[in-house]
Simulated scan of single mutants.
Amino acid sequence: MPELKNMSMLLIESSPYHSNEVAIPYPTYFHPSTDDDVLQWQEKMRRQKKRHLFSFAGAPRPQSLKSIRGRIIQQCQASSSKCKLLECRKSSKNVCHDPSSVMKLFQDSVFCLQPPGDSFTRRSAFDSILAGCIPVFFHPASAYTQYIWYLPQHYTKYSVFIPEDRIRNGTANIEQILARIPEKEVSAMRKEVIKLIPKVIYADPKLRLETLEDAFDFAVKGIIQRVNEVRQ
């Protein structure tokens, strides 16, 4: 219907084929009530000690020939002294359904691996930002072409990119790539990630943050800007 082409749609993952779709962050586990809740959380993440160089929370996709998750899991298991794996198995006791397990893993990790799953994007990417863990992406559509209102255009400021083809053909060793990043760069990326936290969370809808703007605020501002551009 022609009318629907003029309707802006906010989705957790947008389509590259529809210009009227805009991606907004997946909801995380944290819904603060006050500015102070957010500021205290950010300070806690700044002080957080990191025990693992990198980690992965997820399950393999053996039914998908294009999936690199199996290879990522193999690399993590081979780097057991540097990588922590949280396997998400399909069972009633799936540890990945437990917020404390996922958040503890990410809080303890410098880098969090975010390969595509059922689709290009993952809620886990926003959980890792919330935990002050630098996300590692393997496909541009996992973040860089999606969350234009929320994430820095210069993606190297807050994340690491490893092309999935290099994982698939075995030419990329994740541990070696991450270990070679200078400590000064890692510290700068981690600061940027923690700075992003207010922007990618949804505050308690019954209350309102006073000075900070959350993901909902940025969505409203973005829509108003789109309307104004159309009018102009």
Rank of each mutant, 00 (worst) to 15 (best):
F138H: 05
A131V: 06
M103S: 11
Y158A: 02
Y147E: 02
G132W: 02
Q146S: 05
D118T: 12
T171A: 02
A141I: 14
T121Y: 08
D165K: 09
D127R: 05
Y144K: 06
K90L: 09
G117M: 02
P99A: 07
A125G: 12
I162Q: 03
C112T: 05
K104R: 11
F137A: 05
I148R: 15
S91Q: 08
L85M: 04
A172N: 09
P152K: 00
D165P: 03
C88R: 01
V160H: 03
Q107T: 15
Q114D: 10
S101G: 10
Q146A: 06
Y144C: 07
Q114A: 10
R89Q: 13
E87M: 14
P135W: 01
H139L: 09
Q153A: 09
Y147V: 02
V110G: 02
R168S: 15
V95H: 12
L105V: 12
C88W: 06
K157A: 11
P99R: 13
H154W: 11
C112M: 04
Q146Y: 10
Y144I: 13
F111I: 04
P163W: 13
H97G: 15
T156R: 07
Y147H: 03
L86S: 06
R166S: 14
Y158K: 00
L178C: 05
A131I: 05
S142E: 12
K93S: 14
H97K: 12
I174T: 05
P99E: 10
L85T: 05
V95Q: 09
N173K: 01
L130M: 10
K104P: 06
T121G: 07
Q153I: 14
A131H: 01
Y147D: 01
E87K: 07
L105R: 00
I174S: 02
Q176N: 10
S128K: 04
F111A: 03
G132H: 03
V102T: 14
L178G: 05
L86M: 14
T171P: 00
T156H: 13
L130T: 13
F138C: 01
S100K: 15
C88T: 06
S101H: 10
P140C: 13
S124A: 10
E164P: 00
I167N: 01
Q146D: 09
F161K: 00
L105T: 11
Q146E: 14
L113V: 04
G117Y: 06
I174L: 01
Q114H: 07
H97Q: 15
I177N: 02
Y158V: 03
K90F: 12
A143W: 08
Y147C: 01
I167T: 04
A141P: 03
I162N: 03
A131E: 00
L105F: 09
L86H: 05
L86I: 06
R166A: 06
F138G: 01
V102P: 04
R89F: 14
K157D: 11
I162Y: 10
I148E: 15
F137P: 00
A141C: 10
M103T: 07
